[in-house]
Simulated scan of single mutants.
Amino acid sequence: MLAPNAVTAMALCFGLTGVRYGIAMEWERAVACIVLAGVLDGLDGRIARLLRGESRFGAELDSLSDVIAFGVAPTLILYLWSLQAMPKVGWVFALAHALSCALRLARFNANIDADVQPHKSAGFLTGVPAPAGAGLTFVPMYLWFVTGLDIFRAWYVVAPWTAFIAFLMISNVATFSWSSLRLRKTIRMEAILVAGLLAALLMTVPWHTLLAVSLLYVALIPFGILSYAKVLRGKPAI
């Protein structure tokens, strides 16, 4: 249990450190901390399964870490960066992200022992997961980092986008999970090559890469919905 829970704790600390950098207005470091928290969040579950260290404690710690690192931290960063300039209701739009993240994780925990989970059984997720939601919420910041244009920092751009991602997190739309992606044996070497190049791009041009990955993820959402509908059509009637 020690190794995966330590990784989860590291993700939590990276999320809170992002808030620290946000308060200091070091925006690139703030976003980088949340991205690193997302990487660690993707590793802790796999480490737990690899070491057979899965536990109820680990599951609860992971959910608490996700709420803070991908709900509370991005909310504060976005508010300090842009939404505080919005008249009267800027904080409400910022809160929508944190609340949606908490509701999503509460739904996940409530269904963790459910016998019937249609999306999960078909290899899909329900809505956008918390780490992806945090990454997508930062799309205006990626654009600002890349272009330097203040239009992407304007509250009338950031607020609608934040509300849209908050909706996706608590929605019932089917989204792709790792288990739903099946690579043919003939292209696995190419997939490894792409993964290596992606890592190099993240180190070289991180904001361009994160922007491209985020937009690709959003573009794949309709295909996830259609793929899940196709799976349902292929099931025999009960």
Results as ranks from 00 to 15, higher is better:
80 L>Q: 01
69 A>C: 13
101 C>M: 04
94 A>M: 03
99 L>D: 00
101 C>L: 12
70 F>L: 14
94 A>G: 06
96 A>P: 01
56 R>K: 14
98 A>W: 06
92 V>E: 10
96 A>I: 06
103 L>G: 02
56 R>P: 06
104 R>A: 03
71 G>N: 08
83 L>M: 12
80 L>W: 08
115 D>T: 09
84 Q>K: 15
85 A>W: 12
86 M>P: 02
113 D>T: 02
66 D>A: 09
87 P>L: 13
77 I>K: 08
60 E>Q: 04
111 N>H: 13
69 A>N: 14
79 Y>D: 05
60 E>Y: 07
83 L>C: 03
98 A>E: 01
108 F>Y: 13
93 F>P: 03
63 S>R: 10
72 V>I: 15
56 R>Y: 05
89 V>I: 15
112 I>A: 04
94 A>Y: 00
62 D>R: 02
63 S>W: 00
76 L>R: 07
90 G>N: 04
111 N>C: 15
54 E>L: 12
86 M>W: 12
100 S>K: 07
110 A>H: 07
65 S>K: 15
79 Y>E: 02
67 V>R: 01
79 Y>H: 14
72 V>G: 07
114 A>Q: 07
104 R>S: 04
108 F>G: 00
75 T>Q: 10
51 L>R: 09
49 R>A: 01
115 D>A: 14
53 G>C: 14
113 D>P: 08
90 G>W: 10
89 V>N: 09
80 L>A: 01
51 L>N: 04
64 L>S: 09
100 S>N: 08
58 G>C: 11
79 Y>M: 10
51 L>T: 14
76 L>Y: 08
71 G>M: 13
64 L>Y: 07
105 L>C: 03
76 L>A: 03
67 V>C: 08
61 L>R: 02
78 L>W: 06
79 Y>G: 01
49 R>W: 00
55 S>V: 00
50 L>G: 04
71 G>L: 11
93 F>V: 09
79 Y>S: 05
54 E>A: 08
113 D>V: 11
101 C>F: 05
96 A>C: 11
113 D>E: 15
53 G>F: 09
111 N>L: 15
51 L>V: 05
107 R>Y: 05
95 L>D: 03
77 I>T: 00
70 F>V: 08
78 L>N: 00
67 V>H: 06
89 V>K: 04
77 I>Y: 09
107 R>L: 10
75 T>P: 09
109 N>Y: 13
89 V>Y: 15
80 L>S: 03
65 S>P: 11
61 L>K: 04
52 R>V: 02
78 L>E: 00
106 A>M: 13
92 V>Q: 14
95 L>R: 06
64 L>Q: 08
